[in-house]
Amino acid sequence: MIVSLSRQAPVRRAKRRGRQWVSIIALLILSLVYLAPLLFAVIVSFKSQLEVSVSPLALPERLQIENYTSVFAKMNYWRSLLNTLGITFAVAVCVTLIAPLAAYPLARISNRSTRLIYQIFAAGLVIPFFAAMVPLYGLMKTLGLVNTYPGVILIYVALNLPLAVFFYTSFIQTVPRELEEAAALDGCSPLATFWFILLPLLRPVTGTLVMFVAMSVWNDFLLPLVFLFRAEARTIMVSVYSFVGEYGFDPTSLFPAVILASLPMLVLFAFLSRQIVAGITAGAVKG
């Protein structure tokens, strides 16, 4: 009995290793299939109109670099990029400053008013934006904020607050209270406790949130289209949608634009992927 078991062990291990290899190959194939749609978009972006119509699956005979160069110029790429970066940065700073401040009491105190406030913020996760668009425009006009960077930044901050408050609240709930209580015994005010004890702990969530905010600002186009329409203030997605015409779109100009516009986000993603994962998974594990 004992002998046979020990004889089987290497066999089982080999089997396991074999299965592991099958598993690895299967996963690699799966991820290739998963990314295939994006690869197709990249391939199409280098084709000529004729090739797109006549031979949809074939690789381009010659890389149509001019698809990119012409789009690059029409988009006013660098300026749009700079505009979008600036707005994104400002929104991220504001959100990561005021959202944890609000989330702190919401996470620590449970009474009728804090619950209500939390619910009001949570409702923001589902509000369809354009129901508010026409009145919002009137408000912005009154405040003199139409066609200004601060105007768009404020709206983005407001729109991102629900998710941020939701994030921070659920994260703070997983942070043990002991530290804060010790600080309170030492005579720390809530603000001091927040600043010196809690905020450093929130750093990972903040990293993630920044990524989320960046994504939502970067990929949006309706808001800047409506509230920031000076030609020189255009954001990058607004530039992309100028390639969708009245009668459909031409993939040989839209796809290069899309790729150029998404590239900075993908680069950022490559560097910050750990933060993103951490953020998406916030609250998935009980602290």
Partner: peptide, 24 residues
């Protein structure tokens, strides 16, 4: 002349309505 182009798919309907409603 400053021509601003917003395609239909790009939100012409929304933009023109909000701008007129807001007086821009």
């Amino acid at each position: 002349v400053e021509y601003e182009a917003i395609s239909d798919a790009g939100g012409f309907a929304e933009v023109i309505r909000t701008r007129f409603a807001g007086g821009d």
